[in-house]
Structure formats: C-alpha cells, structure tokens
Amino acid sequence: MAESRPETRAIRRLGAGMALLLVGGGLFVPGFASTDNLLDVVTSAGIAGLFALGLLMVLIAGELDISFTAVASIAQFGLALLFTRGDLGWASAILISGGIGLALGLVNAAVVTWLRAPPIITTIALLNVYGGGLALLSRGEMLYDFPVWFSDAAVFRVFGLPVSLQVLLLAVATAATLVLGRTHWGLTLRAAGGNREAALRQGVGGVAVAAFAYGWLGFLSGIAGLAQAQLLQAVTPGSLIGRELDVVAATILGGASLAGGRGSVGGTLLGVLFIALIGNVLVLSGLSPYWHQAVTGTVLIVAVAPFLRGRRRAAIPVGAS
C-alpha cells in the first residue's frame, strides 16, 4: 500500500529512538536492563496501550475522541459497584465493563456524527459530562475489597485461562491488525478517514464507520478500566481522567494522523512503549520526574514535524472541512 510509507517511517524513527533509550539505559542506568524491569514497563504501559489501540481505530477513521478515560472510569466504577452486590465471574466482569464502554462509545459516535462539530470540542464536552456525572454519583468514594478470584495474582481469566495484561494487549493488537489489514472493514475505515468529505456523503456508510470506530474505542476503554481495577485492586472514580492527552500523544507519535487514514498497530504500541520507557529511565536514573512532560512534548513535536512536512501534496489538512 502506498500510504503505508509514513507509518513505516514513524516505526523506523521510533525504533531508532527506542534502541537509543535501551542501549543508553542499559549502559548507564542501574536496574534498567533486567527482564523484570522491562516487563514492568510493558505492564505499566498496558493500560495506555489498550487506550491507544482503541484510539488508533478512531484516528484512522478520521475522527477523534478524548472522553475515553471517563468512559473507562464509568465502566470500572459500574463493575466495582456490582462486585459489592454479588459475586460475578471473569466472563461477566469482562462483559459488563466492555459492555458499558461499548454503549458509551456508541453514544459518542451518535453525538459526534450528528453534531458534525469538530470531535475535539464535542468530546471535551462529553469528557466533562461523563467525568462530572461520575463524580456526582460516586461522591468520589473509593471502592476496594474485591472478591478473591479478582485479586488472585496478576492475571485475567478468560474461559478459565489465565491471561496477563501483556498477553491481553498482544491479543488486542492482533485483533486490530487483522481488522485493519485483512478485512473489508479495515479498508473502509482507512478510506473513510482518508477522505472524510466523501465518507460523509456516503451517509449510512459514514455512520457505520463512526459507530465501529467509537464503539471499538469504548469497548477497549471498558477493558482498560477493568485491567486497571485488577492491577490496583481499587477503583477511584476518575483516577484515569487527565491522561487522555498523553494517550493521544503516544498514538500520534506512533504514526497515526488526525487527518485520518493513517496509523499502524505496531507504531502505536511502539509509541506507547517509548513514552513509558522515557518515564522509566527518568525514575530509575534518579532524575527529576518533572522532566517527563517536557521530554515527551519535545519528542512529539520533533517526531511529528519533519515527518509530516514532506508528506502529500494535498495542501492543507487544517480547517479544510
């Protein structure tokens, strides 16, 4: 595919940056080059990874959603509430949190497509409605003391099989790769994202694309909420809110574009890992954790700027709606 070139370039750049970090970290930062530490990085990047893989689909479809952290918070809160009512199993836990996420994702799709305002504005509004609503209903009370089966070790269970967060992430990544690469849907998504105007004129097709993309993000947000609740064994309403822009940054670092049509699963995972690695190196090397944001922002700008410049001839992606 001709348009996969920018994605490949993003991956190559990220790979080089990553190699630099790994070698530098391994040489100069004590405790960095252990398998355990690197596994921890993957785990801590796992939640962001789930969000990012969800967001990727939305970006490819030429849309944007930043309310997903609030969606995840609602899903995990709903789940935790049900925990206090009765004993669920893994299957129902996954269904419930994923279901809540999916439902809210579909709401987002409906609102954004119908309003036809820039999705960044619409979803900032939705983020506040969801987040504020959750804070009102929950009064911020933290829920904890979950059933034993939920806290046992660091695993999910799907159909009785233990699944670690890393494996879950890989499974989702595989699913996303298949959807994007092997199905008719993947092509439709890319086409819709590449040319929003045409997709809008398609009517029903456009709506279906949006429903799929936002629904996918919503579902994965629900799962991310579940994963975070499992990891921490506690649900603080809204503890995830405020991280949405970091996820957007990671996904864009991975080669996705707000103009739609572009982005790859591998690049997205690399983007998330790269940001997590920067944080890890900063903490382990004893540097101020406050460097993190400045470094990440600079990397984002540097990575995106030259990368887009020589891109396509189509004049201006900005405000050309």
Partner: peptide, 29 residues
C-alpha cells in the same frame, strides 16, 4: 507547526502544551 509543518492544530497545540508546562515545571520545580 500549523502553518509550515502543516500539523493539525490539535497535535501542534498539544505538543505546545506539553513543552510549555514541562519547561514551566522544570524551571520552578
């Protein structure tokens, strides 16, 4: 970034946000 590198304003201002607050936090701790 928006005008010459043709970056979407959301991304450009997001990068600006991170750099501005990062630098601000660094100089003030």
């Amino acid at each position: 970034l928006v005008a010459h590198a043709r970056i979407d304003p959301v991304v450009a201002s997001l990068g600006g946000l991170m750099v501005a607050s990062g630098v601000g936090i660094l100089v003030t701790n």
